[in-house]
Design a protein around this nucleic acid. Structure first.
Lengths: 374, 374
DNA sequence: CACCCTTGTGAATCAGTCT
DNA sequence: GAGACTGATTCACAAGGGT
């Protein structure tokens, strides 16, 4: 079986996440999803991140102590996450106003580069019974790359298609996890903060590829692993409580991965690049032929090397169109037309004809990788 | 005329906010709204697909050397804000992912007690032109009391009435400030980040009383003061740029206080749109399932990202149906059917089922101004 | 006057590849 | 690694002009 460091791939490992993270090699993980403890104060009792109870009075506890220990804990696991994350990977962290500001600040300090904060808007939140505040109807996710300059996987076009051909926004409307999906043991919720699979579906689909390794350092009920398995990603989960490890394993046994063909990012296929010169070589455009702007006002002559002659200017289709429009840059494919049977035809159409004739389908699957340049 | 410290009540004072804050007495302000610089860290220029340049925030007041210098600045003005805030008062701070995490962390460290984070969801944000991230369609507001134990003003019932007798949620749907409301000088926007009055309307109405003193340490175009005056609150604004002070004063001169606390904004009742991808996430439509045209002649397979495979063509439900019908555009929701128990069922029906099941409580979405200032 | 089409624009951390 | 070159990329409104 495949391994990563000491760990079996596709498993939930019981133990403290910081200790376990330290055993992972550098730059070994493609995507991280983390749902850390929230540091909530409940029933007048405060729990430190390591789950030991703190006596608010006798322990001399105050908010500063609490925040300080929480910050220290987050600095540890986030540092390790950054170390194990590949430079092409990205990380998602979910939280509420109790902890997300501290987490975001620490992430920025560590050099993570925030790409978006995503708002999970709960379509069916619990009402605020006391009526003392606004109904807290959302949680916040931070999506970040390893550093400012690093590239990352993002299936922009797939998400646009997913969203009825409009680019996906930072507000996501997803019901809370209830009903059949909610795992119960002896009639009681197995985990108090089980996340909806819909949320992980979107995250994994948009920011990872098939066979990528996804790490969840706070695995809990195993939602990340379950969706990862279903979408044919590799996964590794860390979880402190043995009970949750068992719950997650039971859950995972029932998951059937989807067939590969339906998971491929066919929508992001790129046709092989066809340089303008290829159109000339194959006679789609003749040497010496005149190209026209859409309104016919501008004309240029095609030279043998694929450059255009426009008055004294000789340059690429892009440069000449940019010059005519008085712009720094322009896409010449959308500017120039040829005359065929007296009718203007876009050279971009000719390019498509060329592609169909010489490349046909299918094209190579290609995921969009964004890379930043200095 | 009434004064607070050295300052005239109901005025915009020109100067550095930290210096001016220091001149205010302790515990003297009922409500603070702060819209600090976001520290956007923009690099080069950004062009739209049509090659026009985006008029970005490039103002000197948003430039900071580092996170450290930004943190230091925020620690200063937030400390002073806490000092001048009455123990019965509260503070609102607005920001984006660039700065809001740092702000929230500092506020918690100073002892502010966060009551809610409110998401201003923009109904009409600027798109992401390059397809590199999710469209950043919101900003975040933090609402906090002076300390954990302090009481604070909150008109829960008013907000519920305002919201058609439904609890007001933490997600607010408000258009960006444009059109008549946007202040222009010589045809250009007077301030690059003018906030919509509706945002301040909700804030002031929900968390202050008539005759309360409201402080805005980053007054800018004067939206806070304008709405405060209209709602019969006292106000004090600090603003570094003389130009903005003048803009705000001109604006304020035109404001007529309301005789009655009438509802100025009407909230429309609408359920969020369900994109095709959501049906897949929840299993209303299975990945790999076949969709049929009404007459059954055309069939397509559903892929994981919500795209359809129809022969060699892979695209959205809308694009594929348009292709089949030989049209430029078509509404795929009315074209495609799934087979359930041998019977064809419209995917639009499935969408309604989803909506009924998970959006039971109607959302309050778009809101509009129904009366304008004189 | 109603309707349609074009143009402009908003807190934006906004490109990828080859030489 | 820097620089040159290619060519991919947008949503909701408001305002104004034309039919």
């Amino acid at each position: 079986m495949e391994k990563i460091g000491d760990f079996q791939i596709n498993s939930i490992v019981q133990g403290d996440c910081v200790e376990l993270l330290k055993k992972l090699p550098n730059n070994s993980v493609d995507l991280i999803f983390a749902d850390p403890p929230y540091n909530l104060q409940l029933n007048g009792e405060l729990f430190r991140p390591n789950q030991t109870k703190v006596d608010a009075v006798n322990d001399g506890w105050d908010k500063f102590d609490s925040f300080e220990s929480y910050d220290k804990f987050c600095l540890q696991w986030l540092s390790e996450c950054r170390r194990v994350l590949k430079s092409t990977g990205s990380i998602w962290v979910i939280g509420s106003y109790h902890n997300i500001f501290r987490i975001g600040k620490i992430m920025q300090d560590l050099g993570f580069w925030i790409l978006n904060d995503i708002i999970w808007i709960k379509t069916n939140p619990m009402p605020n019974f006391k009526g003392t505040r606004f109904n807290n109807a959302h949680e916040t996710l931070i999506w970040a790359s390893k550093s400012e300059k690093s590239s990352y996987t993002f299936h922009y076009k797939s998400m646009k298609t997913f969203n009825d051909d409009l680019q996906m926004r930072s507000d996501w409307y997803i019901p809370i996890c209830q009903g059949e999906e909610r795992i119960k043991v002896n009639g009681k919720k197995a985990h108090s903060t089980q996340k909806p699979e819909e949320l992980l579906f979107r995250i994994i689909l948009s920011t990872s590829n098939i066979n990528d390794l996804i790490l969840d350092p706070f695995s809990g009920s195993g939602t990340t692993a379950a969706v990862a398995k279903r979408l044919k990603r590799k996964f590794l989960g860390f979880e402190r409580e043995l009970f949750y490890v068992q719950v997650a394993n039971e859950r995972l046994n029932k998951i059937i991965p989807l067939a590969e063909p339906v998971l491929e990012y066919k929508i992001e296929r790129r046709k092989p690049k066809v340089p303008f010169g290829s159109l000339i070589e194959k006679g789609f455009v003749e040497i010496g032929e005149v190209l026209y702007s859409k309104n016919g006002l501008h004309q240029a002559v095609v030279l043998a090397d694929g450059s255009l002659q426009y008055g004294d200017l000789v340059a690429s289709i892009h440069k000449v169109s940019a010059f005519i429009l008085g712009k720094e840059n322009y896409n010449g494919w959308s500017f120039w037309y040829v005359k065929r049977n007296g009718i203007l035809q876009s050279i971009d159409d000719l390019r498509n004809l060329y592609s169909e004739k010489y490349f046909g389908t299918p094209f190579k699957i290609h995921s969009k990788t964004i890379s930043k340049t200095a």
